[in-house]
Simulated assay, not measured.
Amino acid sequence: MTESKELIQSILKANDTKDFYPIFTPSNPWPTEASEQETCRLLVLDSSFNPPTKAHAQLLQTSLASYPSNFFNGSLLLFSTNNVDKSLTGASALQRAQMMEIMARNFADTAVGFTPHGRFMDKAKYIHSWFAERYNGQLELYFIVGFDTMTRLLDPKYYNGMAVQEALAPFFESCHLICADRGPEDVDFWTNTYSVFDRELITRIQLDPITSQFSSTLAREAIHQDKKDLIRKILDPRIVDFVMRNKIY
């Protein structure tokens, strides 16, 4: 990881004022090219990755499996350095980028990108801007979100008095959401949500009950308490090795 670390450090330094930039791409060009008549579809897993867990991996895997083969031209692990609700603690931006690359290499056509923006509309705007010359508006983003993130996204407090449907209308012109919900107890939420937003815009998926509990917070707690068996259940072995070698938490 030494060469990768130095390369990532140089990328971070060179791009620290940009609104979006890739840290790692599995191929050049990435994502795979769509034909002139086709829309490029990019699957985006946006998270803090502090550290990446098996739940993150299953979110990506389950989302990919929920669509036809080759539906997506690529996947992106996205980290927001200025999250709306969180400050940067734990792993550094460099360490997160390194761990995200480890995870990305487990999936075909999966890249790692950074943005300073915390709002989904801003993230979408600047990812589109990055690819504007290649796709000229023919790019659709599919953001994977957890249920808590979904409820925050639909929370009116973030929209300065504007109706949520009106505020999100520009976002849904070229973006979709894939939400990992929690099952039957969310019936009222989804009834209300689908009364406002088209079902084609928001897809629901579910993780298995055990993996869905594997949060980054639980991973950090297990590391602090030196619960080796639990750590191995929550994290990929290569992430465990990286965390332990670098004494991150």
Rank of each mutant, 00 (worst) to 15 (best):
Y135K: 08
M103H: 04
S80H: 00
K86H: 02
D155T: 06
I102S: 06
L141E: 05
T149R: 05
M103F: 10
A124N: 02
F143L: 01
Y159T: 10
S129G: 12
I102R: 09
F114A: 07
L154S: 00
V84N: 12
R152A: 02
A93Y: 00
M150L: 15
S92F: 05
R105M: 14
M103N: 11
N160H: 15
S92C: 06
N106R: 15
D155I: 11
I102F: 05
T115Y: 03
R152F: 00
E166F: 05
Y142M: 00
G118W: 08
L154Y: 06
S129M: 15
M99Q: 02
P156F: 02
H117T: 10
D155R: 04
F107Q: 09
R96L: 01
Q95N: 13
N83I: 08
A124W: 00
A111R: 07
N160Y: 13
M100N: 12
L94C: 03
G137Y: 04
F114W: 13
A132F: 13
G146P: 12
A124T: 01
G113T: 03
F143Q: 02
K123A: 13
Y159R: 07
M162V: 13
R134N: 02
R96P: 00
I144V: 10
I144P: 03
M103K: 07
P156E: 06
R105G: 05
K157R: 14
Y158W: 15
E140W: 00
T110F: 06
A163G: 00
A108D: 15
F107G: 12
F79E: 00
V84I: 15
Y158Q: 14
T110E: 07
T81A: 12
E133Y: 09
L78S: 04
G118M: 05
N82F: 11
D148G: 09
F131A: 04
T89L: 10
R96C: 01
A111C: 12
F79D: 01
V84E: 10
I144G: 03
S80V: 00
H128W: 04
F107L: 01
K86S: 12
F131C: 06
M99N: 04
Y142K: 06
I102E: 07
S92H: 07
L139H: 09
A167W: 06
Q138P: 08
M121W: 00
K123I: 10
T115M: 04
M162P: 02
D122H: 13
T149I: 10
T115S: 12
V164E: 04
Y159E: 04
G161E: 08
M99D: 01
M103D: 05
D85E: 11
T81E: 03
Q138A: 15
S129C: 13
D155C: 13
K123L: 09
R119M: 13
M100W: 12
S87V: 15
S80F: 00
G113H: 01
D122I: 02
L76C: 02
L76P: 03
A97S: 15
R152V: 10
D148P: 09
L88H: 13
N82W: 00
A132S: 15
V84M: 09
M99Y: 05
I127H: 06
G146K: 05
